[in-house]
Design a binder for these strands. Structure first.
Lengths: 160, 160
DNA sequence: GATGAAAACTTTATAAG
DNA sequence: CTTATAAAGTTTTCATC
């Protein structure tokens, strides 16, 4: 069972690249795409799942149609930087459904969060009713996303 | 065919929530999960796909196992802000496979990009060999991601 | 909405070249 | 790796209540 990058050959990488953007490809189509017959292709997918390379499958939803069509990136600086405060903040953010991404970072701020909001009104109410009710925030800095040109889940390095 | 938020009822929302994190649920399991029998559940999934709510399916890969295990958020300020320069930069970033997200934003910087790198060496070589070969960059500001606590693709607002 | 059924396809396992 | 087989499960369509 592969569990390191070096265990992946060119065909494994092709499988991962195909499934990254088309997670519901049938085994027959996938085999055809990567240049294998069905049976070894299926075994490779199993191995990639069991080895943890493929962690799961997700649907890609249209946020515009769902509402909360605007995306805001909010950098958050906390008052204190001890583990307890940092972790508590992270856990709180994690639980808010409109918060899509929560990243603890190095540098000038502590957290970067990506939030789906419904216009400037939605943004305002997220800040006032949710974010600023969390204790320990020193300050925040927001940038609205005007356009997202790419949003993929992973990068599959070439094995050269 | 639904094509607005208001066309989604509670069961549609349940279907989307389930598929958001388990994109390969079988129709039988999904039906059971959302409290429907198989046939109407299947019709709803079809409608959600045709209505554009579900744009596709993806696999979730383990970036640690694949290599390029570190994530860096890089804010980029460009020299000029005319459409031509902005779009050209965006398109260039979009084509680099290690660049996972490309967002054109309001505020103090122009673009926020999320990049998968292989340690500080990989970061350095991305900056030197890729990012700084692109013309028109005034400056950048990077933050390494220490930990990602949440990373989901969409938010399904409640229909209340 | 629920149920049931039929055909086509997919998944999963296994055997043999 | 390939081809082939087979049972179980899933997808898709469609008719009926």
């Amino acid at each position: 069972m592969p569990n390191r990058v070096s265990d992946l050959d060119l065909i494994d990488r092709r499988i991962l690249k195909a499934l990254l953007t088309e997670g519901r490809l049938s085994n027959a189509d996938l085999a055809n795409r990567v240049g294998l017959s069905a049976s070894p292709c299926w075994q490779r997918v199993r191995r990639l799942e069991e080895g943890g390379f493929i962690r799961g499958y997700a649907s890609i939803l249209d946020q515009d149609l769902l509402g909360a069509a605007e995306t805001v990136m909010i950098e958050v600086v906390l008052d204190r930087h001890d583990d307890e405060v940092l972790e508590a903040f992270g856990r709180t953010m994690q639980q808010m459904p409109e918060v899509l991404e929560v990243h603890l970072t190095t540098g000038e701020y502590d957290y970067l969060i990506k939030v789906a909001v419904d216009g400037t009104k939605g943004y305002e109410s997220f800040l006032r009713e949710k974010l600023y009710r969390v204790r320990g925030i020193r300050h925040t800095r927001s940038s609205f996303v005007l356009r997202t040109l790419k949003d993929v889940q992973a990068y599959i390095p070439d094995g050269d």
